[in-house]
Amino acid sequence: MAVLTDRRSAPESGAPQRESRRLGFSQRLGRWDVKLSPYLYISPFFILFAVTGLFPLGYTAFVSLHEWSLLGGQGEFVGLQNFTDVLNQPTFWKSLVNTLSIFVLSSVPQVIVAVTIAALLDQNLRSATFWRMGVLIPYVVAPVAVSMIFGRLFADQYGLINSLLTLIGLDPIAWHGDRLASHVAIASIVNYRWVGYNALIFLAAMQAVPRELYEAAVIDGAGRVRQFFSITVPQIRSTVIFVVITSTIGGLQIFDEVRMYDATGLGGADKNWMTTVLYLYDVAWGNQHSLGRASAVAWMLFLLIVVIGFVNFLVTRQISSSGMASKKSRRKSATTSMSRGNA
């Protein structure tokens, strides 16, 4: 009877073991689910980025190393010959200078005016929604339409700007003949389109600043200007870095405004406002019909954007960090003086 009892009890003792094994497997499966599920959730972004971003970037590098024509397709492997040919063309260097000039004339005023407008919209205004939507209208309008309108405003003979200058006794400006004047006109188009968009980004950052800081500043007797430079600007420093970097990337890739600025669309007769992207377009689809050299231009522009964007990031971060450090030192000195006075 004892043997029978042991045999009958053996399966009963094995059941909990199998159940514990099942629980162990489910626990392991749950652990893998916890580890892998975040990566599965974000995988669509990386897949789309690899297909639409990394693959074109790598394929452009592959094309830039070959003699690749528009009609004949892939040719012989030429190495860095396309880069050398582009660097030896004076038009490339002229387009690069034009791009940097328009970038400086558009990015710096763009950030300053956008911060100012955001600070005004952050006040207690009547119909605040109307004004906030109003500054976004230029961004919604198609860039081709905006460029055509501004091209007529800055016309040399019958433009509205020259008519106003003549009306007040000034000489008309050759907006399509003078190099610097054309850069100012194109920069005005860029600023008109992007100031409102950046202003809303700054406004969102300003509304996230704790209002207790402003209340404490009012109690201490600080005015609006003092509050802006001592509280608002340090609190939105990360947003300033973001806007500066995005403005750098967009400013160095300007194409629509330059393309539609005049009837020719290729920077004028003397290439006075031909940017690097417009030069790339001309190399690929214009006179040269060389996709290999155009890919080389694209890669050099990509490296230039990375370098300038990184420099802007370092400079803006250094300025913001130094401002925060000086602010902390002033707080420490004030606290020390108060503690000595109490002692």
Rank of each mutant, 00 (worst) to 15 (best):
A294D: 08
T248L: 08
L280C: 09
T276Q: 12
R259A: 12
T264H: 11
S295E: 03
A298Y: 11
L291S: 02
I254Y: 04
L266N: 08
G265T: 02
V297D: 06
Y261D: 03
D282G: 10
I249W: 02
G292L: 01
M300S: 12
L252I: 03
F302L: 12
R293W: 07
G251E: 02
K271D: 09
V277I: 15
L280M: 14
L252H: 06
M274N: 05
W273P: 00
D256I: 14
R293Y: 07
D282S: 14
V277G: 07
V283W: 05
Y279A: 06
G267D: 10
T276K: 09
E257W: 04
Q253C: 04
A284E: 04
H289A: 14
Q288H: 09
G250F: 06
S290H: 08
Y261M: 04
L278R: 15
G292A: 02
H289L: 15
A284K: 02
G250I: 03
G267C: 10
L301C: 12
R293E: 15
N272D: 08
V258W: 07
L291V: 00
I254H: 03
D282E: 15
G268R: 06
A263E: 13
W299P: 00
G250M: 10
L280W: 12
A263D: 12
A298V: 10
D270G: 00
M260F: 15
V283G: 02
M274F: 00
D282C: 09
V277T: 14
L303K: 08
T276W: 11
K271F: 09
G265K: 03
L303G: 11
G292D: 03
G251C: 02
W273H: 06
F302C: 05
L280V: 07
T246V: 13
G268K: 08
V277W: 12
L301K: 08
A284I: 02
W273Y: 14
L303H: 09
D262M: 07
L266Y: 13
R293A: 14
F255P: 09
N272Y: 01
W285L: 14
N272G: 05
F255Y: 15
I254R: 07
D256A: 15
Q253D: 07
A296M: 09
Y279N: 11
L303E: 09
S295T: 05
H289K: 14
R293K: 15
F255G: 11
F255W: 13
G292W: 04
Y281G: 07
D262G: 05
A294R: 04
L301I: 12
M300D: 10
Q288Y: 13
W285A: 05
S295D: 03
A263C: 01
T264I: 14
D262P: 05
S247R: 08
S295K: 01
L304Q: 12
W299L: 15
I254V: 13
Q253I: 00
Q288M: 12
S290D: 15
Q253M: 05
Q288K: 09
T246F: 10
K271S: 11
N272P: 00
T246S: 10
